[in-house]
Amino acid sequence: MSSRTTDQKLVYMANQIATFFESQAEGTRAQHVAEHLRSFWEPRMRDRLFAMLDTNEADDLTPLARRGAEIWREFGKAVPAHSEEE
């Protein structure tokens, strides 16, 4: 069993998702991360990640993972269409 805490695992997974989408076109990366989180993370995972963002417990998130999570939180189920800014 891994010695990582659940919070560390969430940050790790979000960062892995962001790493995957770094190969996408600039300006769409964060939206892709947000869409992936929305599509595949269950509500408990989402809620904990948002709580970690609010309490600065997610300091190890990459900037892309953080931005994707912020987009997801801001727009909820309706992640915006891809734009030119990140």
Results as ranks from 00 to 15, higher is better:
residue 10 L to P: 01
residue 60 D to L: 04
residue 51 A to I: 00
residue 42 E to P: 02
residue 21 F to V: 07
residue 44 R to F: 12
residue 29 R to N: 06
residue 50 F to D: 00
residue 83 S to A: 15
residue 24 Q to M: 10
residue 20 F to D: 14
residue 72 W to P: 00
residue 45 M to F: 09
residue 59 D to F: 04
residue 42 E to T: 03
residue 29 R to K: 11
residue 46 R to L: 08
residue 23 S to K: 15
residue 70 E to C: 06
residue 47 D to K: 09
residue 30 A to M: 10
residue 54 D to R: 11
residue 76 G to S: 01
residue 29 R to F: 07
residue 31 Q to T: 11
residue 50 F to H: 05
residue 66 R to A: 10
residue 81 A to C: 02
residue 80 P to Q: 13
residue 43 P to S: 11
residue 46 R to V: 07
residue 24 Q to Y: 10
residue 15 N to R: 01
residue 8 Q to P: 09
residue 45 M to W: 06
residue 30 A to Q: 10
residue 82 H to M: 09
residue 68 G to Q: 06
residue 22 E to D: 00
residue 59 D to L: 09
residue 54 D to W: 08
residue 23 S to D: 12
residue 49 L to V: 01
residue 8 Q to L: 03
residue 76 G to E: 03
residue 21 F to R: 04
residue 36 H to G: 11
residue 9 K to H: 11
residue 37 L to C: 15
residue 69 A to C: 10
residue 66 R to T: 07
residue 70 E to L: 15
residue 48 R to M: 01
residue 26 E to K: 13
residue 16 Q to S: 08
residue 45 M to K: 04
residue 49 L to P: 02
residue 53 L to E: 02
residue 47 D to F: 07
residue 13 M to R: 05
residue 55 T to D: 12
residue 73 R to S: 06
residue 79 V to C: 08
residue 37 L to T: 09
residue 8 Q to I: 08
residue 15 N to F: 07
residue 27 G to V: 13
residue 71 I to E: 01
residue 28 T to C: 13
residue 60 D to S: 14
residue 13 M to V: 13
residue 19 T to W: 12
residue 41 W to L: 05
residue 8 Q to F: 03
residue 17 I to K: 15
residue 50 F to M: 01
residue 17 I to R: 14
residue 41 W to D: 02
residue 26 E to C: 14
residue 71 I to L: 05
residue 69 A to N: 01
residue 78 A to L: 10
residue 17 I to E: 14
residue 73 R to N: 09
residue 60 D to C: 05
residue 9 K to C: 10
residue 75 F to A: 02
residue 77 K to C: 00
residue 35 E to H: 13
residue 84 E to L: 14
residue 17 I to M: 14
residue 39 S to V: 07
residue 14 A to Y: 06
residue 60 D to E: 15
residue 50 F to E: 01
residue 60 D to A: 13
residue 20 F to A: 13
residue 80 P to K: 11
residue 29 R to P: 05
residue 43 P to W: 06
residue 19 T to Y: 10
residue 66 R to E: 12
residue 27 G to Y: 12
residue 8 Q to G: 14
residue 26 E to F: 12
residue 52 M to H: 01
residue 26 E to I: 15
residue 54 D to N: 12
residue 21 F to N: 04
residue 73 R to M: 09
residue 33 V to K: 08
residue 29 R to W: 10
residue 30 A to V: 09
residue 69 A to W: 02
residue 18 A to Y: 10
residue 73 R to L: 07
residue 45 M to Y: 05
residue 37 L to F: 12
residue 9 K to V: 13
residue 17 I to G: 08
residue 58 A to P: 00
residue 28 T to L: 11
residue 76 G to C: 02
residue 52 M to K: 00
residue 16 Q to I: 00
residue 30 A to W: 08
residue 14 A to F: 04
residue 25 A to F: 11
residue 65 A to Y: 08
residue 47 D to A: 09
residue 39 S to H: 14
residue 28 T to S: 14
residue 76 G to I: 00
residue 83 S to Q: 15
residue 14 A to R: 07
residue 14 A to E: 03
residue 37 L to A: 14
